[in-house]
Write a protein that binds this DNA or RNA. Structure first.
Length: 598
RNA sequence: GGAGGCGUAGCUCAGUUGGUUAGAGUAUCGCCUUGUCACGGCGAGGGUCGUGGGUUCGAGUCCCAUCGCUUCCGCCA
């Protein structure tokens, strides 16, 4: 028997009992005679005391030389610590276990770094991830992930969905991200691909008559990492439904994700959420893609910032300012962000905004601005405009005296990269952005196609399997770039949480859509052969979406590092420093796989 | 593929204008310490200053290259 009680559960009510505990030596305080040990297990920490008169000097000597983080078993009596000896900072601080016997179960060598040290280099931590996992906040964050998954499964089952597994080894497909490839031993020269998402399988389940599918699905993409993006594999709540329209998918997502956020809004396992958070009430606001790009310069706007972007190209076209006039006449735009109360900011703030925009955002010049202060308009651009023009712009911005309007001029989409972060920063600096709330919005009506800036080629802008609005008819009659897809994203606080769509289940429309994107019919029929056949044998209209699990957990954990919500994360270059992956393999293995390295 | 930041003891960091034997905390080891809770005290070991080259009488410090980590851009249907 290793234990009959957990360390963190011991309380004054247990005093008088004899207990056996097993755990890690978290800290030791050696007083020559009496030795205190903070013993830690999954439940928490309790102080255990080694006294010479109880265990003898040999045991005192032995426990003194048992390294920190060794695993031991102790047995003894639980006592009240008594007046002046309690520790109010520990839940177990009123009691302690007086050790009668102990066993070392797993001795620890000196550690490469102290568990309590948070500023250890990332690669050293990743090499010893099992040590990092012992830290309370790390463990609780991984617990959160597990609890979120359990909650999602419960909510999906309650809605009549069932979970189905789909293959991990599948076929490479021509569109999308770079595939991870797995060579086939039985088929020389042929490769499996790891699925970027179970997209085609879930659609084929619909064809199979399974109305409501979901899966906590692993997805594999061989792309470069970001702070909020794993470089190799990540998980999605993937779901698909038959005989539904956009509103039906939204209702499920709002119930399930809204429920999850409400359930965990007060989670504070890592101490970053002292005050709790509010959750935007469903139904969540829907913003067409084109509107989002105009108002927020971004298809994943952070709605905690109330500021909106407004086009004032016409005003500047009629001004005396040559730079902006030329930009407008050359097909560019002048966009404005109006900030109430910003005129009170010191000159140094305006300078720092300008410096930041140029250095961090790559703006060609510091953003121009006009401030309205003490009845007068100020700022370097004022002299190029009539008072009526200035008043017109303040009126459009809905900003009165005491406010400032900022300008960014140039061509789209280049100006979006400046406008979006600028909008959020201005709101933040002026105290306008909401805190302690999850703000959701649906971005709808994404364009079906986009033109590649470099090559001029037309390609799918999002999911090639989305139904174009207007169906086959719009594909045949409209300018491809004007066609909208039945394609939507869910955004929370500036993070894309969900992407989904109503699917194109009409073979003719599928062929036409791929043709516009430059894929000939033979390629569609060959590369998507399963779907192509299936769609000729009775396919229900269907749609769905997928939610990025790591991003959900990151938001709930107030984290901006995806590594914090993964038990065994890769480093930025897709290496597992603990396991040593990827590795070289033996020549024999390569030979079996018919592979020759070059 | 491109840009920025970082790299000094196992770990966290300091190190002046380029100057003589590179310091501190922590961990480890030894001694002391019977009520601490980040216990405390004394002492010891531990360094190719990421690596390579250059400038110089002299480089942790300046220059060049390179490697590693990290953030961003490209990329991510």
């Amino acid at each position: 028997m290793y234990r009959d009680m957990l360390c963190g559960d011991l309380r004054a009510g247990h005093v008088g009992g004899n207990f056996t505990l097993s755990g890690w030596i978290f800290r030791r305080r050696d007083h020559g005679g009496v030795v205190f040990i903070d013993l830690r297990d999954t439940s928490g920490i309790v102080q255990v005391v080694f006294k010479p008169e109880e265990v003898g000097p040999e045991v005192i000597e032995a426990i003194t030389h048992t390294g920190l983080e060794s695993v031991i078993k102790v047995s003894g009596a639980l006592i009240l610590r008594g007046e002046g000896l309690t520790n109010p900072h520990m839940p177990t601080g009123e009691v302690e276990l007086v050790v009668k016997s102990h066993v070392v179960l797993g001795r620890a060598d000196p550690l490469p770094y102290a568990l309590s040290d948070e500023s250890v280099p990332e690669d050293l931590k990743l090499q010893h991830r099992f040590l990092d996992l012992r830290r309370e906040d790390v463990m609780k964050t991984i617990h959160l992930r597990s609890d979120v998954i359990a909650s999602i499964r419960q909510r999906m089952w309650a809605k009549g969905f069932r979970e189905y597994q789909t293959p991990i080894l599948t076929a490479s497909s021509p569109e999308g991200a770079r595939d991870f490839l797995v060579p086939s031993r039985l088929h020389p020269g042929k490769f499996y691909a790891l699925p970027q998402a179970p997209q085609q399988f879930k659609q084929l389940l619909m064809v199979g008559g399974f109305d409501r599918y979901f899966q906590i699905a692993p997805c594999f993409r061989d792309e470069d990492a970001r702070a909020d993006r794993c470089p190799t594999d990540f998980y999605q709540l993937d779901l698909e439904m038959s005989f539904v329209q956009q509103d039906d998918v939204f209702a499920v997502a709002e119930d399930v994700l809204g429920g999850v956020f409400a359930e965990f809004k007060d989670w504070n396992g890592n101490g970053r959420n002292e005050k709790g958070r509010a959750v935007d009430a469903a139904p969540w606001v829907r913003i067409p893609y084109d509107t989002a790009m105009l108002d927020y310069a971004c298809d994943k706007p952070d709605l905690r910032c109330p500021l909106k972007i407004i086009d004032v190209s016409d005003v500047w076209a009629a001004s005396e300012f040559g730079v902006f006039k030329n930009i407008v006449s050359g097909g560019g735009h002048v966009r404005m962000i109006g900030v109430p109360k910003a005129a009170a900011q010191p000159r140094s703030w305006f300078d720092s905004i300008g410096k930041w925009a140029q250095e961090e955002l790559g703006a060609p010049a510091a953003p121009g601005y006009i401030s309205w202060k003490e009845g007068a308009f100020g700022g370097p651009l004022t002299k190029f405009l009539s008072e009526a023009q200035v008043r017109e712009m303040f009126a459009r911005a809905g900003v009165g005296e005491g406010g400032v309007i900022f300008f960014i001029a140039g061509k789209t989409p280049a100006i979006y990269k400046i406008l979006n972060p600028l909008r959020v920063r201005l709101g933040k600096d002026c105290g306008l952005n909401e805190v302690g709330i999850f703000r959701f919005c649906w971005i709808v009506d994404f364009p079906m196609f986009e033109r590649d800036e470099a090559t001029g080629k037309i390609d799918f802008s999002h999911n090639p399997f989305s139904m174009p609005q207007g169906g086959l008819e719009s594909l045949e009659s409209q300018d491809p770039l004007s066609i909208k897809a039945t394609q939507y994203d869910l955004v929370c606080n500036g993070y894309e949480l969900i992407s989904g769509g109503i699917r194109n289940h009409l073979p003719a429309a599928m062929l036409k859509a791929f043709a516009i994107a430059g894929y000939p019919p033979e390629v569609v029929k060959d590369k998507f052969r399963g779907m192509w056949k299936a769609f000729h044998m009775g396919v229900p209209p269907h749609g769905g979406c997928a939610a990025g699990l790591e991003r959900v957990v990151m938001l709930l954990a107030e984290s901006n590092m995806v590594r914090e919500v993964v038990a065994f994360p890769m480093n930025q270059r897709g290496e597992d420093l603990m396991m040593g992956a990827p590795t070289v393999v033996e020549e024999r293995q390569l030979k079996e796989l018919h592979i020759k390295l070059r």
